[in-house]
Design a protein around this nucleic acid. Sequence first.
RNA 1: UGGGGAGUGGCCUAGUGGUAAGGCAACCGGCUGUUAACCGGUCGAUCGCAGGUUCGAAUCCUGCCUCCCCAGCCA
Length: 430
Amino acid sequence: MIAEIKNLNQHAGQTVTVRGWLYQKRSSGKVRFAVMRDGTGYLQGVLAQGTGSDAAFSVFEQLTQESSFTMTGIVREEKRAPGGYEMTVTDLGVIQIAGEYPITPKEHGPSFLMDNRHLWLRSSRQHAIMRVRNEIVMAIRQFFYDRGFILIDTPILTGAIGETATTLFETEYFDLGKAYLAQTGQLYVEAAAMAHGKVYCFGPTFRAEKSKTRKHLNEFWMIEPEVAFNDSEANMQLQEDLICYIVTRVLERSRAEFTVLERDTSKLELVKPPFPRLSYDDAIARLRRAGMTIEWGNDFGAPDEEKLMEEYDRPLFVFNWPTECKAFYMKRDPNRPDTVLCDDLLAPEGYGELVGGSQREDDLELLRERIREHKLPLESYEWYLDLRRYGSVPHAGFGLGLERTVAWICGLDHVRETIPFARTLGRLYP
RNA sequence: UGGGGAGUGGCCUAGUGGUAAGGCAACCGGCUGUUAACCGGUCGAUCGCAGGUUCGAAUCCUGCCUCCCCAGCCA
């Protein structure tokens, strides 16, 4: 019978076959140990004189690190084994003998590991990160599904649209001139919200910025909900609910991975509602009192962000930012026209901005004015303006960066490990 | 793009003017309970590239390349 390692507790005392890759082998005189990984777990097979066939001994000698093989034997409970079970091996079968494997159990530098990313994914730590990422993605989809949101897939190839024109990847699009890889699905999801009420998109986004920091990728995945009739207040509530749902769910389901990652989960246990909220005005006052030199009207620098978060052990909302440093589609606060109804959600432990959200400008004339102020081509936005011509309603939404969320939850020091194949400045391989 | 740091066998590190050292991996041998096993042995480097200083350069100087960290941009 074929079995997966994670299910071996159901096969104690039985003879089964597992299939996988050689993680490590050792021998002590006549007793041989082969540790297999099959993607679901690790299993040590014990090969001893009298229990294993001669053929099995000969296969054992051939096996190299990461060789693929099958292992047949009796599953045995074993207190000394990390997974609680061990196998008394009767037979081994070669699938392929691996050449000398570049990644050894010792330390390696980041560029070597990224060059070997296709193999690095097999390492226990990377394996754990991808499992947490999967769990986070599933939590997000479940959260929105349960709340009646409709998934809307927005285009990746777009015309001249988005926030600014300088950060887009370009390509030729038949006879229609330039196309750009989407840096957000937001404008499209606004259209869909007028059809379905509550929608979200979840896809890759592309930014051609030459940023080289632990928080930036040139290709990353973003979750962008958009809700008709929501104001900025309801928008923040939705963000808080989503983050709490994700954290609760990974704490329930990713314990084993957090152990591998040595993540201090007590930090995550603190992530409970309500999240603290600070207006931009108050945040500036607080930063200046703390000795920072920031002026009203400026965006926060990384040091400002860190300073501000020193006092918080859970995510912090900073809301209602100056109009001048935010995007054209954000709605102005009627009581404070120099600010817009928006928020940034900052993660604790120095992970920076997880979410950027806002209530959208729903007035046709004001929106048109702002497009002009930002020197954007009006004709490209006609369809977007139509949303304000035909039954415009207040609405709000936000963008959650998946990789930053994974980095924070896993406690990683760089987002490049949160995505299977990171696209960063100077990295297109593998 | 700016500031800082680093390039030494397949990998990780030591060596800062006198002719390259250790660990891991690989290979050979030993051990009937190993688990980053251990013990003995073997293999393997024109020290990022190009020039210069010097009797002599991995080491000092100049230029270039690459990578890492920090900043800006943002999610």
